[in-house]
Amino acid sequence: MNLLVISAILAAMVGMRFLKPSMLAWIAIWWLGMFAILEFGFAVPIPASVIKIYMGIITLSLIAYVLTDPERVEQVWNPIVAFTVEKRFQPLLVVVGLLIPCVVAWSIYADMTKSKQAPSFARTVHPAPPDQITVHDTDYPLGFADNPYRTLEASAPEEFAARVQAGRDVYYSNCLWCHGDVMAGEGMFAHALNPIPTSFEDPGTIAMLREAFLFWRIAKGAPGMPDEGGPWESAMPAWENFLSEEEMWNVILFLYDFTDYKPRAVELH
């Protein structure tokens, strides 16, 4: 977050409070202030679709705030009525009247002349896995499969640690280049890819998923992505062509061990 920008906007809003603006002006200040925070207050810009949702909510709340109190309604409504009917505002009204089509024309011009972009697509975070996959002639029902070595964590901690270590070796030999040394999706090849690889540090990724899901993604990679929700634009190789099943389960143990997340457990009815 750009704390400096946010602080400046909030300070400006507090400062405006001392000027005792009218209710209408105050509502406008709030609206613009919130918009400015959302638009400029984040180091990584918030996508326009989310800003629209947030601004919709803020607009609705401001309307509710005004309409809840008859006095506020008058404080907002009266200046608008005065502006449209009183003679002293006529020159300004004419300016506004001319400004509206100008703004519309400008927005159309801006829309038509902006640089061309590749079409966007609604990418989903978690592709839906198939019910079952086959890896090296072994069938894995993904709904019920679990990491065969997970139980070692309690029953044989030393063997478990050895497997985590083995997984570490697999990771730093194969996955490091894209997913990065701290698993934030910032490996040395990452910025040649669009979108960049998944960050395992993100609480919405491996922390939400079962180990069998990771096994599917690692084993089948981009070629195994489902038709639904595509195009996936993933560069993930199908690691079943390079790694054994044991190695893939080991690297999954390491991913959770490194990030300190726990996998989602299999829930049975």
Partner: peptide, 24 residues
């Protein structure tokens, strides 16, 4: 707040995926 955000290609590139680093 959506987990998977509807975004343009540029926005996805900036976020490094369909999840925003803060809003995520």
């Amino acid at each position: 707040t959506p987990r998977s955000i509807l975004s343009t290609t540029e926005e996805i590139q900036a976020m490094g995926g369909s999840s925003h680093p803060v809003l995520g």
